[in-house]
Design a protein around this nucleic acid. Structure first.
Lengths: 358, 358
DNA sequence: ATGAAAGCGCTAACAG
DNA sequence: CTGTTAGCGCTTTCAT
């Protein structure tokens, strides 16, 4: 009578039921264990864990998100940061996404034929996105953050100038990092130090400038206004700024650029003007992107753990996405990561000629 | 008797059944339409399509891969290409993956604590990966390609030197591109032209060199062996090579570097030696990565559509993955993409002084 | 050319 | 603390 229809099971992979059988419990208990839910006796948990290991069981993501009805996707928005930064940013995100079992979707927010950033975000939200990761300068745009949060979605700001009132963020102490680098340069014996400011739209820029100013001040050094030039974080803007600084008389013996791209440009400009680095000019950067190790001499810079920061952002988004309730509680978290002054070959003490006593 | 338990349906998203109801057919027919399967009357198909549009139906990926039992993931292997290249590569892959509904996993194949590239690939295959995308220099490694193909998985080579016997690949005509660029430089009036070779492990390197050689030959110019320097595609290696070339007497009036990183390094080195670019030295690159537009002067280079190439690779992988049968037929496909000589500001005719008639 | 039934692997909801 | 049941949205298999 009951002709048993052929079963479909295709991938030899073990399933939750296999584990349950092995551990002598129900699939539900296994589910609880793999989801780290409370309310499982530790003996049972142990048994399940053992069975999982024995069978080398790995949860099937598709089944998981289908059953849970979750849209395990988060959007990585970006608006033209430097390529080097973007590459790091992507790598960090992808690695962690893989680990957390999320799908990340990368979406440019720049001049996408008529659609504004707000349009794009609205569209993403209505297609089911509940999580967004924002690198600078987006992470500083409060109106974008608000737009996302107002729709009940999650926004994680990476490298914003300051932890904003709402939403999670991961950042380094920009002010202190710039302060440290400036102090380092002063410690080398420099007195006339130029500074190249970054994109004015990014709060981190002014923070770095503030750090520079404070360090100079604390060292009792005056800041020549002609020695602070405006840049926009691009190589090109760095060349222009460097040219301006190197034309000042007497010219600076050191230049601290707000990022590596502009520092690399400064080195190039110095060479064009027949100045050796670091002999004639000390040049320091910020970020420690790939570029810092590409140019010659390799740049002394501040290592900002971009990859790790993005990874944290993705991980946090994943966590917040799973814990549906109580969004408000954790959502204001700010995670401050350590930076590091990496000394390489682009800095040295000023030459005797340059050091003008008194 | 039958107390109806609460239903779980969560996402307001329309499902295949909603479409079926709207189109007055069964879910199965809708499934056939969205999968482009044969055997649906065109009238029926139209109706379904209309319903899909009306409801703005979008297939649920999780359900799809669960039911089909497919592992919709492909691995992007990489082994330390330049950051600029990597960023382009990733962007192309991610965009397309999003479109094709695949999950991409990025995996470094470089010195990952004791695990060799082969180990990593074996592990990935046994965790269910059936598709791999390989950028250079991996795309030139026949043993890696074989390893993947032998396991019945799919490998797509991006930018290999030549379309390998088996497996799909996407590339540009490296030889012809280098030939064109060299001809362009010759056309400007240059006679003493230096060339910086790329990483010897990449077949594309020798192809570019061959193109250079052939163009010189066809123009009736002799190649001074001292004017061909070995590099490794890195900025650093470019500096060394440029230094060597610029020390040759009489020095070249133009240098064609095999990629933008080395071209940028050449510009930097020229500046260090107090040569203006392009007035004293024409410098041309290859790839048109971000760097080409970052340095000053902006580089004349060959635009290689990395993003589009990777996108094609992902799309093809997706297609091949879905069409389970007849893997051998399509798997040898080679897709040649167009390149473009992008003229910017780093080239010009040699100055009169440099042009030594006869 | 179309449809009905079953079930992919997992988790929500409700008992016990 | 643990198990039972139903069903997520889709595709397979088989029948018509």
């Amino acid at each position: 009578m009951s002709a048993s229809r052929p079963r479909r099971r295709q991938s030899g992979q073990p399933t939750i039921s296999d584990v349950a059988r092995e551990a002598n419990c129900s699939p539900m208990t296994v589910s609880r264990v793999i989801n780290d839910e409370a309310g499982v006796r530790s003996a049972t948990r142990e048994a399940v864990l053992k069975a999982i290991k024995k069978l080398d069981y790995r949860p099937n993501r598709a089944a998981r998100s289908l059953a849970a009805g979750e849209q395990q996707r988060i959007a990585l928005l970006y608006d033209n940061p430097s390529t080097a930064y973007l590459a790091e940013f992507l790598m960090g995100a992808l690695e962690e996404a893989n680990r957390s079992g999320l799908q990340v979707v990368v979406q440019s927010v720049a001049d996408t034929d008529g659609e504004t950033g707000r349009d794009i975000i609205s569209r993403l939200i209505s297609s089911g996105f509940r999580g967004f990761i924002l690198p600078p300068p987006l992470s500083d745009d409060q109106s974008i953050l608000d737009l996302i949060l107002d729709h009940g979605a999650i926004a994680i700001a990476v490298g914003p100038g300051a932890a904003s009132g709402n939403g999670a963020s991961v950042l380094i102490d920009e002010f202190q990092a710039a302060y440290d680098m400036t102090s380092h340069i002063i410690g080398l014996g420099h007195r006339r130090i130029g500074f190249i400011v970054g994109n004015p739209q990014q709060v981190a820029s002014s923070l770095r400038l503030d750090g520079f100013r404070k360090a100079m001040e604390d060292a009792g050094l005056e800041i020549d206004d002609r020695l602070v030039a405006q840049g926009r974080f691009t190589y090109r803007s760095g060349m222009d700024a460097a040219e301006k600084l190197l034309s000042v008389d007497p010219r600076p013996t050191a230049i601290f650029a707000s990022n590596d791209d502009m520092a690399a440009a400064t080195v190039a400009m110095a060479h064009r003007r027949h100045l050796e680095v670091p002999t004639d000019l000390t040049v320091c950067g910020f970020d420690d992107t790939d570029l810092a190790r590409s140019v010659w001499p390799e740049l002394t810079t501040i290592r900002q753990p971009i990859r790790e920061m993005t990874a944290w952002a993705v991980r946090t988004a994943a966590t917040m996405l799973r814990g549906k309730r109580g969004a408000s509680s954790a959502s204001t978290e700010a995670h401050i990561m350590p930076y590091e002054l990496v000394r390489r070959d682009s800095d040295t003490a000023p030459s005797l000629l340059q050091r003008r006593p008194g």
